[in-house]
């Protein structure tokens, strides 16, 4: 089993096609949509987490490319500089995937990198600038 996060760009003519559905069904993958939207230019963008056998994940991505979908690995990572974070909580409100959240018991701000889609919204919102983009 492997897990991989990818960014899929759908050209306008593919937006109404059940690409992801066929990918996961035909190649027996599990998927998790981390982010999806359609741009004003009518292109689709999806950040997808895929899990399955390595060979199946590779095949599925190759198939998607053949359909005209551009596939890029999610290369950027947002990391938290632990020595800079003060655990205030200013970031929590802008995180679209709840990768940043506040533990109600301890009031610590928890960062869950697995849920992060590297949208970078937290980067300028963090008052001491603890969230950094890593390539």
């Amino acid at each position: 089993m492997v897990e991989r996060r990818v960014v899929l760009h759908f050209p306008e003519n593919l937006i109404d096609q059940p690409i992801v559905s066929r990918m996961v069904r035909e190649f027996s993958l599990e998927f998790n949509i981390l982010r999806a939207n359609i741009t004003p230019q009518q292109e689709g963008l999806m950040v997808l987490g895929l899990a399955g056998k390595r060979v199946d994940v590779d095949k599925a991505l190759r198939w998607a490319r053949q359909q005209g979908v551009s596939v890029q690995p999610l290369e950027k990572n947002v990391v938290r500089n632990e020595s800079v974070c003060t655990h205030c909580g200013a970031c929590v409100v802008v995180c679209p995937t709840a990768a940043l959240w506040k533990d109600p018991e301890t009031q610590d701000v928890i960062f869950d990198p697995d849920k992060c889609i590297a949208c970078e919204l937290c980067v300028p919102v963090c008052p001491p600038r603890a969230m950094e983009v890593a390539f």
Partner: peptide, 23 residues
């Protein structure tokens, strides 16, 4: 406020702290 959300005008509103309670 520290529970994570409050209700205002019947709506559940997430809370955001600028003060660090752990510190």
């Amino acid at each position: 406020l520290k529970s994570g959300s409050i209700t205002i005008k019947g709506k559940q509103v997430p809370t955001v702290s600028l003060s660090s309670y752990p510190r």
